[in-house]
């Protein structure tokens, strides 16, 4: 993940840092290349554009400190804007609510909702010693409920018994009831995948939300997503009030543009990332660390920070 973007950006910025004086034209030229690198990494066009504008604006009037080159200053600015775009502080799932805490998992078809549900349940159970119940509200996809039930068996997490014929809302209510009666701390609600153009299905999940009043609404999204990332993130957020994003398939060699874009357009934090198919392949998302990884110029940034 991010390697290709890292290579591109560090190449561009490296050239910049090696020069003595920098004209406005030099910066503009470098930023054109940065824009291209961002687009090739699937960063949404508008997000890339805003990013470039902000870097340019700050780079033009920058106070150059004696001990660093102007190019190094620009690298630092790019770094800071990248961190800002990714969300300065790491945030993770909150369980600060009355038990059982409902968490609603939503997203497009095949984005990784069911797998992520099991991973989160596994983590709460084993790391945080919480009593977790998982329920599948996917009444549509073949064997979707069996998939979650199997994952429950594999992870040792309880799943709500399957009752054929119930609607998603009915299952959600039953899950919360079982959560209360069974003394569960957390109830994870996995839902069917849906496109945001599907009005009936978007209405269904909105009704589920009203019925259970989830403490977290997590949008599960694929890190390989292209320009559609912003459209999808915005639409789910507008319909459901997303509280956080779970980005899956960060173990691929996608370029991570979706990570940058989704956070930027919704302002919602990326709370967790999926890095594999196994239950423990789940990481926290640390914007600082990711920004450093993307730029691959941690030493330059540190140098400017010290100056």
């Amino acid at each position: 993940m991010f390697d290709a973007l890292t290579d591109r950006l560090s190449g561009i910025l490296d050239r910049l840092t090696r020069r003595g004086a920098l004209t406005e034209a030099d910066v503009a030229e470098a930023m054109r290349e940065v824009r291209r690198a961002l687009l090739e990494a699937d960063v949404a066009l508008d997000v890339a554009r805003t990013f470039i504008d902000r870097v340019k604006e700050r780079a033009v009037g920058v106070d150059v400190v004696k001990s660093v080159t102007p190019g190094q200053m620009v690298v630092k600015i790019v770094h800071d804007e990248l961190v800002a775009m990714l969300g300065a502080d790491a945030q993770t799932i909150s369980l600060a609510a009355a038990a059982p805490v409902p968490i609603l998992m939503v997203g497009l078809q095949g984005s990784g909702k069911t797998t992520s549900t099991a991973k989160i349940a596994y983590r709460f159970t084993n790391r945080d010693r919480r009593k977790v119940l998982m329920a599948s509200l996917d009444t549509r996809r073949p064997a979707a409920m069996e998939q979650l039930a199997t994952l429950g068996t594999q992870t040792g997490v309880a799943t709500l018994p399957i009752v054929p014929g119930q609607s998603a809302v009915q299952i959600a209510r039953r899950a919360m009831e079982a959560g209360r009666l069974g003394g569960y701390d957390v109830v994870l609600l996995d839902t069917a995948g849906r496109t945001t153009l599907d009005e009936a299905l978007m209405a269904e999940v909105a009704e589920v939300k009203r019925a259970v009043d989830p403490h977290e609404v997590l949008l599960v999204a694929d890190a390989l997503t292209g320009q559609d990332a912003v459209v999808t993130a915005r639409a789910f957020d507008e319909a459901l009030g997303v509280t956080g994003i779970v980005l899956t398939r960060l173990d691929g060699d996608g370029r991570g543009g979706a990570a940058l874009s989704m956070r930027a357009v919704t302002g919602k934090p990326i709370k967790l990332v999926g890095v594999g198919e196994k239950f423990d392949a789940l990481d926290e998302f640390d914007p600082q660390r990711i920004a450093n990884r993307i730029l691959g110029m941690g030493d330059v940034v540190a140098l400017v920070e010290k100056a």
Binding site: E40, A41, D42, L108, G110, D222, L224, T225, G226, Q227, D228, A229, T232, G252, D253, G254, R255, G257, A258
Partner: peptide, 11 residues
């Protein structure tokens, strides 16, 4: 190929 996929589809 998933239509939502970006440049990774080439890879």
């Amino acid at each position: 190929l998933d239509a939502t996929t970006g440049q990774n589809a080439l890879g």
